[in-house]
Amino acid sequence: TFSKILDSFSSRSDFFYTLKCEEPLKPEESKDWELGFNIFKESLFFDNDRLGIKVSYFDNRIKNFSFMRYAVAMPEAPIPSLTDLTYANNLEDTRFRGVEYQLNYDMGRAYTNLSYTHMIGSNDFCSPDYFMGGAKKSGKTLKSVIERYTRPDGTTGIRSVREYEWLDDPERNGRIGCGAIMGNAAYMPADRGSLTVGARFLERRLDTGVRLRYSPGNGKDLNAHSYKSLEQAMWPKYSVYDLYASYWMTDDLNITLVMENATDEAYFVAMGDVNNLSMARGRTLSGMLEYKF
C-alpha cells in the first residue's frame, strides 16, 4: 500500500509528514464453514454401475476484507478526490456463500459428471473517506491585515488577508463512504459449471470424452458499459468445449491428448473486471506420455 501511495503522491510537498498518520491495513480474518451431504449407490440401473450425488452449502465470512477504494481524501484536502485511490479495509463483513452441486454416474462403458456452483447474495464495501485522517476546518480569525501586492501587469494594489485557526474536524474524519470500489470484488463471482460425457473402448483401455464449461455471467452487458460506475465487474456468459482421449497402450504406458476450447471461443474467465479484462486461452492442444516402472 505504501509503495502505491508513494508512486501516486510523491510530488505533493505535504505528503511525507502526513504519511505518518496512516494506520496500516488490518489483517483479514476469515471464518469458513461448509455443510452438505453425499449419496452413493451401486448397481442402481445395471450391474456394477455407480451413482454419486453431492450437495453442499458453503459460507466464507471475512472481516477486514481489503479492497481498492477510490474517491478518498488526503489529509487537509477539502473534499475526497475521484482520482485518489488506496487499499482499505471493509468496515462491513464480506461474505462469499453459495451452493455446490455434483452428480457422477458411471456404468463402465460410459459415464457422465456434472458440477455447478451457484453464488448467493451481495456485499457492501465501506471505509472512511479520510483514510489517513487529517480532515481540517477553519476556526476563529487569528489575524486580519491589509497588504500591498503587485499584479502581473506591474501595477500595484491592496487586499485584505486573514489568517484562521486550522482545527481538526472530527465529523469529517469520522465520515464513512460506501460503494466506491474498483476491481473484481465489486460483485459476486459468476455462477459456473461443467458437464463431462465420456466413453471407454478397447477393453476400457481407450477413454474418450467431451467437456462443456459454462457460465451464465453476472447479468451485466459489456455493450452497455459506462464509466459512470467504476466498480463494475463483468463476466459475460460463455460456453466452452474441451475434447480428451487417453489410451493405455500397455499396462505401463499411457498417452493422453487434450484439446481445450475446441471451437476457439473468445471468452473471459469469471473473476475479471471491466477495467482489466484479459482473454482466456484459445484452442489449445496438449499431450502427456506416462510410463510406470
Score class of each variant (00 low, 15 high):
Asp14Pro: 01
Glu171Val: 13
Phe65Gln: 00
Thr117Phe: 15
Ser43Asp: 07
Ser56Glu: 07
Ser10Cys: 12
Thr250Ala: 08
Ala186Asn: 04
Leu91Ala: 14
Leu285Thr: 07
Leu19Gln: 08
Lys136Phe: 07
Leu44Met: 07
Leu142Arg: 01
Ala224Arg: 04
Pro24Met: 05
Arg204Tyr: 13
Ser215Ile: 01
Lys140Gly: 14
Gln232Glu: 04
Tyr130Arg: 11
Asp153Tyr: 01
Asn38Ala: 03
Phe46Trp: 10
Gly174Thr: 06
Lys20Met: 00
Asn218Glu: 01
Glu23Pro: 05
Ser226Met: 00
Lys220His: 12
Phe46Glu: 11
Met68Cys: 05
Arg200His: 07
Thr156Phe: 05
Val269Lys: 11
Met182Ile: 11
Lys41Thr: 07
Asn275Trp: 04
Glu203Arg: 13
Ile53Phe: 09
Ser215Glu: 00
Asn104Met: 13
Met107Arg: 13
Asn276Ala: 15
Leu243Trp: 02
Leu222Glu: 01
Ile5Val: 03
Pro75Arg: 10
Lys54Asn: 14
Glu147Gln: 08
Ile146Trp: 08
Gly219Leu: 02
Arg175Tyr: 01
Lys54Val: 12
Tyr87Ala: 12
Lys237Ser: 11
Tyr130Gly: 06
Ser160Glu: 10
Gly282Asn: 09
Leu85Arg: 09
Leu19Thr: 00
Asp7Val: 06
Arg175Ala: 00
Leu35Ser: 05
Ile62Asn: 04
Glu76Val: 07
Glu260Thr: 14
Met182Thr: 06
Ser246Gln: 13
Ser286Arg: 15
Asn60Ser: 10
His225Val: 07
Asp124Arg: 09
Leu85Phe: 08
Glu100Arg: 15
Thr117Asn: 15
Arg213Ile: 11
Asn261Gly: 14
Trp166Pro: 03
Leu222Tyr: 01
Gly36Ile: 04
Ser229Glu: 13
Asn90Lys: 01
Leu167Cys: 07
Ala199Tyr: 04
Gly139Trp: 05
Arg95Gly: 10
Tyr116Glu: 02
Thr250Gly: 10
Arg95Thr: 14
Val240Cys: 13
Ser229Asn: 10
Asp129Pro: 09
Ser3His: 12
Asp264Cys: 08
Pro216Phe: 04
Tyr105Asn: 11
Cys21His: 12
Lys143Ala: 13
His118Val: 12
Gly282Ile: 06
Gly154Asp: 09
Ile146Gly: 06
Ile62Glu: 05
Gly177Gln: 02
Leu35Arg: 01
Thr250Ser: 12
Arg109Leu: 15
Thr83His: 06
Asp273Pro: 01
Met234Gln: 04
Arg50Thr: 13
Lys137Thr: 12
Gly121Cys: 08
Asp168Pro: 09
Leu253Ser: 07
Glu171His: 10
Gly121Asn: 03
Asp49Phe: 02
Ser10Ala: 09
Leu51His: 03
Pro78Glu: 01
Asp221Thr: 04
Ala233Asp: 09
Leu230Cys: 12
Phe67Ser: 02
Val197Gln: 03
Asp129Phe: 10
Met279Thr: 14
Asn275Pro: 02
Ala270Cys: 12
Pro128Asn: 13
Gly121Val: 08
Asp49Ala: 03
Gly287Val: 14
Asp32Arg: 03
Lys137Ile: 06
Lys143Pro: 02
Tyr105Thr: 14
Glu34Ser: 11
Ala185Glu: 00
Met68Ser: 10
Gly133Trp: 07
Gly154Ser: 11
Gly108Met: 11
Phe40Cys: 05
Lys137Trp: 04
His118Ser: 15
Leu222Met: 06
Arg162Asn: 06
Ile53Ser: 06
Val99Ala: 05
Met182Ser: 09
Thr117Pro: 15
Leu257Asn: 01
Ser11Asn: 08
Tyr116Met: 12
Pro216Thr: 00
